[in-house]
């Protein structure tokens, strides 16, 4: 790499432990790797002979495939394990599962887990590099980074932008990583949603809380609705999806109050007609699929960097 900056992290557990130079290095590295995916032969030998294991305790299509493709384009051998947390109630602890995997000498273990802090727990118990692919309602660092990359790509500069994140902030690990990441890079993050879904003291993480969506979206450079997680509906958090769509759904009218040329982003999967009107999702302002494309480049960069950037 052209950068002289040394990446000193063995694990990627969250954006909270990455510095601004760390983030810049990751974004620059990803930018240089992005081109690989456009080649006729989409493979470089950078991680040849390395073993990457993905261990997912929650369903995932996009993130898992993205890590898998990223690893393969770097010539690593990849193995996927779908685990259910119910297997831990059968007796095997997370630490045991991880130690068993480690005994087969992988180089990177990528984990998604429903418990916040599960990747921190793993990093304490094993020596293999751990990349957090989403832990509970805590962080989703690779998503946060690909969002930064996408905004930087389209806007040139992240610093000074107004970022509006709308929806279930409480249960969104993407929102947490984005708030931390965009704030670190000098953007102003505004959040809005049903007050039942805004966690206490989120402003100390760097976000400005708006009671109306209009306030958050007005003159925003980036508008990002979050998925309303249907599995959360046992708690009395919102009365109905219909009411949610009326007051917190992003449609054309709402998007028009944002700055001209504002980017529409979404971490996916989209509930069309709930948090996002179908026509806006497919509009020219939407960079949702660019996010997905950049996700591969970010994950290539992360794997490259945690293994020492060689």
């Amino acid at each position: 790499m052209s950068s002289e900056y040394l990446f000193a992290h063995k694990h990627i557990l969250g954006l909270d432990h990455l510095s601004v130079p760390d983030i810049e290095l990751i974004l620059n590295t990803a930018e240089s790797f992005k081109e690989i995916s456009t080649r006729a032969i989409k493979k470089v030998p950078v991680l040849r002979g390395k073993t990457v294991v993905t261990l997912f305790f929650e369903p995932s299509t996009r993130t898992r495939l993205s890590f898998d493709i990223a690893a393969k384009r770097m010539s690593a051998d990849t193995f996927s394990i779908s685990a259910s947390t119910s297997s831990t109630t059968k007796g095997e602890t997370l630490a045991d599962t991880a130690r068993n995997i480690e005994a087969m000498m992988p180089d990177i273990l990528i984990m998604r887990h429903p418990s916040s802090g599960a990747c921190h727990y793993l990093a304490k118990h094993i020596r293999t590099s751990v990349i957090n692919a989403g832990d509970g309602t805590h962080e989703h660092p690779s998503q946060g980074l690909l969002d930064l990359m996408t905004v930087k790509e389209h806007k040139g500069e992240i610093s000074g932008l107004k970022i509006a994140i709308i929806g279930d902030i409480s249960h969104s690990r993407v929102a947490h990583s984005d708030i931390i990441g965009f704030s670190k890079m000098g953007a102003h993050v505004f959040v809005s949603g049903p007050a039942t879904l805004i966690p206490k003291k989120i402003e100390r993480l760097g976000a400005t809380v708006c009671t109306t969506m209009a306030e958050a979206v007005s003159d925003a450079d980036v508008v990002m609705p979050l998925r309303i997680q249907t599995e959360r509906q046992n708690d009395p958090l919102i009365p109905s999806f219909r009411e949610y769509a009326t007051f917190f759904g992003i449609n054309r009218q709402v998007l028009q109050t944002a700055r001209p040329g504002a980017l529409l982003m979404h971490p996916g999967p989209i509930n069309r007609g709930v948090e996002l009107a179908p026509d806006v999702a497919d509009s020219a302002q939407s960079v949702i699929l660019d996010q997905v494309t950049n996700g591969v480049a970010i994950r290539m960069a992360l794997m490259y960097l945690v293994l020492g950037g060689k």
Binding site: D16, S116, G117, D135, G136, T137, H138, E139, R173, H176, P199, K200, K201, I202, R204, L205
Partner: peptide
């Protein structure tokens, strides 16, 4: 305990 630390750690808080 519910507060900034619970929010930043992604843990459900007890107010």
């Amino acid at each position: 305990n519910e507060g900034f630390i619970s929010t930043s750690m992604g843990l459900n808080g007890i107010p």
